[in-house]
Design a protein around this nucleic acid. Structure first.
Lengths: 239, 239
DNA sequence: TCTTGTTGTGTACGATAGACACAGTTTCTG
DNA sequence: CAGAAACTGTGTCTATCGTACACAACAAGA
């Protein structure tokens, strides 16, 4: 009766718990997910284990299996918990709305960097996650784009934001492993720079400090994508 | 003497093994990496363990540690092994060259889907991986863009290709877990479609069959990005 | 020849996800 | 109101993982 995927659908979409008999649950799905996100925020997704989550809740790990079928589902509800509500987006034209949308998304990813690792591969999305897609699609109302084109445009924007967030992590406050890697990459480029002239030139001329550079990269890509969309939309309107 | 990051630098960049005393090594770093990629190609990155790799080579798992400091380094050399050589890119204008480059990159990611998971987070890149960046940057020679802008443009393209590859995996031959998820998502959209009108409309009008849809999505985003770059480059040339 | 550094192996440890049976608790039902 | 039924939390167990460590076999320099 407890199908594999159906279980996850119920956890993300289904109604809340409606038990009748038996002791009252001491935990809630939301509390478990919140604890998991707390650990992931502080120490990364790798630090999230059933043990850690359970002992932070004062229970044994096996009790968690009364609420979740397994770890994969824990990550799924953690994602849905960590994702903010999609921002209201009723102001301005499609360009302004998509810009605000992208900024909101990158903000979410910066707050929870582990979302990048947790959301690779095909997976079932929750209400809030789908809400983000819905908002972006609604911004493209009245642009003359087809459904497929709107979808492709949203995917394009999402990919860009993800890419920026991925870079942001590398340039973050540097919890030392990142800094070491950055330093090693610098050494490599110094030693083998001759084999990568364009790369060496580009990095040399782009000595931008941490967060500022990421913001610039975000705006750059955003402007390019939106410019490209504008070309298409303008062409559609003419015909 | 064996620094943590220095070790990985030597594995990816340094000279080959130059031992003197002792028995000749029965394995090679390349052979190990190749075995790992084989497993990852067939059964996913999760199926790659020291045990699996070692027993497929007819050795014990501990012998691998004579060649690699740990699993993280194994994944790193696997990535460098799986990545194809960056394609020669001397033909056509910057637009044609970047188009070919993107197609090549998406092809690589389709051949080795696990590269998506293996390349999240900041990490040290190998010669071939840097070669891809170098090629893309060289395509932007003479466009009047600054170093930082060229870098941002390449990152933008890479993010798009990654996003497409991520989608491609969901629409792949469907090794059943993906198909189940797709079906579950369809069910969810049918049940809650009213809350996501734009999403429902967009998916309904975009019933494209598997691979074809991914190709279209790739081209769509590519055209948008390149159009956007063209706007910028044209503006630069005028001033 | 003897020393020295290297390779492969066996054993061991801690941490992980999860299966399963059992005891305690609450509520529905007869 | 009493018994049954369903549910929760726990303790125990297994398989697998990455990896530390000591040791025997081995090959080349001194």
């Amino acid at each position: 009766m407890t199908d594999d995927p159906t279980d996850l659908v119920r956890l993300l979409w289904g109604p809340g718990p409606q038990p009748r008999r038996g002791p009252k649950p001491a935990l809630t799905l939301d509390g478990i997910a919140r604890t998991g996100t707390g650990i992931a925020d502080a120490e990364g997704l790798g630090a999230v284990s059933m043990q850690r989550v359970a002992e932070q809740l004062g229970k044994t790990k096996m009790s968690l299996y009364r609420y979740l079928p397994g770890k994969a589902e824990l990550i799924a509800v953690m994602v849905e918990t960590a994702v903010d509500d999609a921002p209201e987006g009723g102001e301005g034209d499609w360009r302004a709305r998509l810009t605000a949308w992208s900024h909101g998304l990158v903000e979410t990813l910066r707050r929870h960097p582990w979302l990048l690792e947790a959301t690779v591969g095909p997976r079932l999305m929750g209400p809030k996650e789908l809400g983000w897609m819905e908002r972006a699609l609604s911004a493209l109302d009245g642009t003359g784009l087809t459904g497929a084109e709107r979808m492709d445009a949203v995917v394009l924007l999402t990919s860009h934001v993800r890419g920026i967030a991925l870079q942001s992590r590398a340039a973050a406050p540097s919890s030392t492993p990142e800094a070491q890697i950055l330093a090693a990459l610098g050494t490599v480029l110094r030693d083998h720079g001759a084999d990568y002239p364009h790369l060496a030139a580009a990095t040399a001329s782009s000595v931008r400090s941490g967060t500022q550079g990421q913001d610039q990269a975000l705006e750059f890509g955003l402007d390019r994508i939106l410019d490209g969309l504008e070309v298409l939309i303008a062409g559609r309107a003419r015909s």
